[in-house]
Each structure stands twice: as structure tokens, then as C-alpha cells.
């Protein structure tokens, strides 16, 4: 079948790839581009392990067709750290033990980052509802929520 040639930007890098028209963005990231940080837990939009941002908007990579990436900007977990510097959320997740097995972590980090970029003063309830699309079976969410709230507080402190 005829492959499509797509030109896009991934984590700030101009990127081109060939894909099948019905391939999901998640499959292209993982299989074609070797960006296996985004995980597949369900393939149906119910777990959030594949969370990425598309032109700054939080989406499930498993529910996006790869051809839709044409001309867009995509950010994945691989783009969160800058150089050798972990993002504050990444640091805090390790410090707070907000991950156990770590399979949900890439998706949770992408989603949490999208939240804090919109709202750096969320309530606990807001954080919980924002992250409701990210299943974590290990932690019971407690330490994840605490880590996100703590980073938000740090961000507000730094902004003051």
C-alpha cells in the first residue's frame, strides 16, 4: 500500500516519516521513530499512557492518525527534560516516589505538565480530575497528586 510522507515537528526537531494512512501516531512514534517513551496500555483512549501534546493540546497518541501530524508540533515525554536537566516534575516524581513500576509515568508527566502550563495553582480536586484519564494501578495516585501539587507550589514560589 502507498505510504504517506509526513513532515512534522517532534520535540522541537523537524521530523519526516513515512506511514500507512491508518497508522496511529502512537505506532509511528514507537515503531517508526523509536520514541518508545510513550506507552500503549489500551489503544482505546482509556489509560492515558500514550499522552502527548499536539500543538500544545493534550491528546492520546493512540487516538490520532499519524497523517494528522502534518505541519503540527508534537511533544512527547522524551522532550520534557532539557539537555541534561530534568524538568521539575521529573525531579519531584523521583523524589516523592510518585512512580512504582513507571509504565504510567510518561503519560502522567505529559498530562501534568500540560495542566501546570495552563494553571499553576490547581486545587487537589482539579489535579485529580485533570489526571483522571491517566490510569495508575501501582500508586493509588496519592504520591502522584502530591508531587504535582508540590511542583505547582514551587512554580508559584519561583514566579513571585
Amino acid at each position: 500500500m502507498a505510504k504517506m510522507h509526513i513532515t512534522t515537528t517532534i520535540n522541537g526537531e523537524p521530523t519526516e516519516f513515512l506511514c500507512d494512512p491508518q497508522q496511529s501516531m502512537l505506532d509511528v512514534l514507537r515503531d517508526n521513530l523509536g520514541l518508545t517513551g510513550s506507552k500503549e496500555g489500551c489503544g482505546s483512549g482509556d489509560c492515558g499512557a500514550c499522552s502527548i501534546t499536539l500543538d500544545g493540546r493534550l491528546v492520546c497518541a493512540c487516538l490520532m492518525l499519524a497523517p494528522e501530524a502534518e505541519g503540527k508540533k508534537i511533544e512527547t515525554v522524551e522532550g520534557i527534560a532539557k539537555g541534561d536537566q530534568l524538568h521539575p516534575l521529573q525531579k519531584k516524581f523521583v523524589e516523592f516516589a510518585a512512580l512504582q513500576c513507571g509504565i504510567c509515568t510518561p503519560g502522567v508527566l505529559v498530562a501534568a505538565k500540560a495542566l501546570l502550563e495552563k494553571n499553576n495553582n490547581p486545587t487537589e480536586t482539579e489535579v485529580r480530575f485533570w489526571l483522571a484519564g491517566n490510569l495508575c494501578r501501582c500508586t493509588g495516585y496519592d504520591k502522584i497528586i502530591r508531587a504535582v501539587m508540590d511542583v505547582a507550589a514551587d512554580m508559584r514560589g519561583a514566579a513571585r
Binding site: R30, G37, E40, T76, V77, L86, F93, V94, L99
Partner: peptide, 23 residues
């Protein structure tokens, strides 16, 4: 003590390789 886990950086950056990440 609550030290940072040794595999922490790998797991928050997407570098850690899980089952489906081997090819």
C-alpha cells in the same frame, strides 16, 4: 531514608525499556 531510586531518571524520561520496547 528516602533516597532517589537508581532507575528514577530512566523512568521519568521515557528511556527505561519495558516489555514492548524491545526490537
Amino acid at each position: 531514608t528516602r533516597v532517589d531510586r537508581p532507575d528514577g531518571a530512566d523512568k521519568v524520561t521515557g528511556r527505561a525499556r519495558f516489555g514492548a520496547d524491545f526490537n
